Amino acid sequence: MSVEIESFATRRTVLGALATSPLWMSSAWAQPNNLKISHQFPGGSIARGDFRDRLCRMFASEVEKRTRGGVKFSIYPDSTMMQPGAQFGALRSGKLDMALVPLSYAGAEAPEANIGLMPALVTSYEQGYGWRNAPVGRELSRILGEQGLVIVSWIWQAGGVASRGDPIIAPEDARGLKVRGGSREMDMLLQNAGATVVNMPSNEIYNALRSGALDAALTSSTSLISFRLQETARSLTTARAGSYWFMFEPLLMSRSVFERLTKAQQQAVMTVGADLEKFAMNSARMDDAEVATVYRGVGARVVDLNPDALRGWQEVARNTAWKDFAARNSNCAKLMALAEQSIAAI
C-alpha cells in the first residue's frame, strides 16, 4: 500500500512540474485553434478564382505558417456553411470565427454598417483604403469592436451595373426598372431615380436576371464575373471611369475568438490581414478592367460612367441616402460627418 501511495505522489509531483515548465507551456501554446472562414463567393485555390476566396486562402496559409501551426483554418466558400445574412449574428456571438462579407449586409442589425455601401460617398480606391487610418475608419472600427467584430483586412470593391436591356448610366435610366442595389441606402437612391428595388444577396442575382425577376443589378466587378452574369445581361456599365457603387467587404473575425488567441497569434492575424490589402486593391482594379473584356466578348454593350452622370448620382445621394443615414442615430451622424470630411480633404 505504501509503495502505491508513494508512486501516486511521485507521478503527481512530476506532472505538476511539467505543467509549470517552459517546455510544457510552449507545447500548450502550439495547440491549434481550428478556425472556420465563411463567405458567399465561388471557391477556387490560392492561385486561381475569385480573389476574395483566394485572399482567404492566402491569409489562412500565411497565418498558419507564422504561428507554426498554432492557428489553422477551414474555408467554406459559396455559402456552404451558412447564408450570407446569418454571418454577422454568428460572428458577434462567437458561433462563427471569421467571414469575408459585405458590411452592408449587417444593416438590418446595425444601421452603422450601411456606411459600407453608401452611394457616391466613396468614389475611388485611394479614398476607400484611406479610411483605415483616417478618423472615419477609426470610428467605424470602434463601433464594430463594440458589436463584437474585428476588422482584419480592409477590402473595397468598385461595382458596375449588369442590365438585361439598355445600360444604366444616369439616374433617369433606372426609371421603371426592377433593380438590385445591395444596401438600404443604395435602394433609396434607386427608388428616388424611379426604380423598383429588389433585395437579394449577390449569389442570387444570376437566377433573378435570367428569370426576369430583375432587369438590372448593381454589384462588384468581381461578382459580375464570378457569378457569370454576362450570360444574362445585354449591357454593362463599368467602374473603370469612376463609380457611385463602392462596397466595403472586410475580412472580419469574431472579437471573442480574437481575444482568446495569444498576443503573438493576434499580431500574426492582423499583420497578415494588413499585408493582403494591397493584393485586394490590385485584384479589384484588375477585375474592373477584365469585366469589360468578358462582357464585350459575349456581345454585350459596354459603357463607362461619365463625370456628369457620376455627379448626378452623388447629388441624388447627398439629398436622400446620406441625409437619411445621418439621421438614424448618433453613431451614423458621426460617421457621415467624418466621411464627408474625408471627401473635402481629397
Rank of each mutant, 00 (worst) to 15 (best):
S2T: 15
E4A: 13
S38Q: 08
G43S: 05
R48F: 15
F59Y: 05
E62Y: 10
R68D: 14
T80P: 10
G85E: 11
G89A: 04
G89Y: 08
L91E: 01
D97Y: 01
D97T: 00
M98N: 02
M98C: 04
L100T: 07
L103M: 06
E109M: 09
P111T: 01
E112Y: 02
E112A: 10
I115F: 07
Y125L: 05
Q127K: 11
G130S: 04
W131D: 10
V136W: 02
V150L: 06
I155D: 11
W156Y: 13
R164G: 09
I168G: 02
S183D: 06
R184I: 14
R184N: 11
D187T: 10
G194Q: 03
P201C: 05
N203W: 06
I205Y: 09
G212M: 00
A216V: 05
A217L: 00
A217P: 04
S226T: 08
L236F: 04
L236C: 00
T237S: 08
T237D: 07
L252M: 09
S254W: 12
S256C: 12
A274H: 04
F279R: 08
D288A: 04
T293W: 05
V294K: 06
W313E: 07
Q314M: 13
D324A: 15
F325I: 00
N331R: 04
S342H: 10
